[in-house]
Simulated assay, not measured.
Amino acid sequence: MLRADKYHQHYMRTLPLHHSQKEIYACDDYADFELTLRPTYDFYMKLMSFGNMIKVLEPKSLQEKICKWLDKTIEVYK
Rank of each mutant, 00 (worst) to 15 (best):
M1L: 08
M1I: 05
L2R: 03
R3G: 12
A4E: 11
D5L: 09
D5I: 07
K6M: 14
K6T: 11
K6P: 04
K6Y: 14
Y7W: 14
Y7V: 12
H8I: 13
Q9S: 15
Q9C: 15
Q9Y: 15
H10T: 11
Y11M: 09
Y11R: 04
M12F: 14
M12E: 03
R13P: 01
R13D: 08
R13F: 07
R13S: 11
R13C: 04
R13M: 10
L15N: 06
L15D: 01
P16Q: 03
P16N: 09
L17A: 04
L17N: 02
H19D: 00
S20Y: 00
S20H: 01
K22I: 01
I24T: 14
C27V: 05
C27L: 05
D29M: 14
Y30C: 13
Y30A: 13
A31C: 12
A31R: 07
D32H: 10
D32G: 03
F33L: 06
E34Y: 01
E34Q: 12
E34R: 03
L35G: 03
L35F: 03
L35S: 00
L35N: 07
T36P: 05
T36I: 14
T36K: 13
T36H: 14
L37Y: 05
L37H: 03
R38K: 10
R38T: 14
R38A: 10
P39M: 04
T40N: 02
T40R: 02
T40D: 01
Y41L: 13
D42I: 02
D42E: 14
F43Q: 04
F43M: 07
Y44V: 11
K46C: 04
K46V: 01
L47R: 03
L47W: 06
L47C: 03
M48Y: 09
M48K: 13
M48F: 11
M48D: 14
M48N: 12
M48V: 09
S49P: 00
F50C: 10
F50W: 06
F50N: 00
G51P: 05
G51R: 10
N52F: 13
M53D: 14
M53R: 15
M53I: 07
I54D: 02
I54M: 05
K55T: 15
K55A: 13
K55I: 13
K55S: 14
K55M: 12
V56Q: 03
L57Q: 14
L57R: 10
E58Y: 01
E58M: 01
P59Y: 03
P59W: 00
K60N: 09
Q63R: 12
Q63E: 05
E64G: 03
E64Q: 13
K65S: 13
I66N: 02
I66C: 07
I66L: 11
C67H: 12
C67I: 09
K68G: 01
K68V: 05
W69S: 08
W69V: 08
W69Y: 10
L70D: 05
L70H: 00
L70R: 08
D71L: 15
D71S: 15
K72F: 07
T73P: 05
E75H: 13
E75S: 15
Y77W: 07
Y77D: 09
Y77C: 05
K78Q: 00
K78W: 00
K78M: 00
K78G: 00
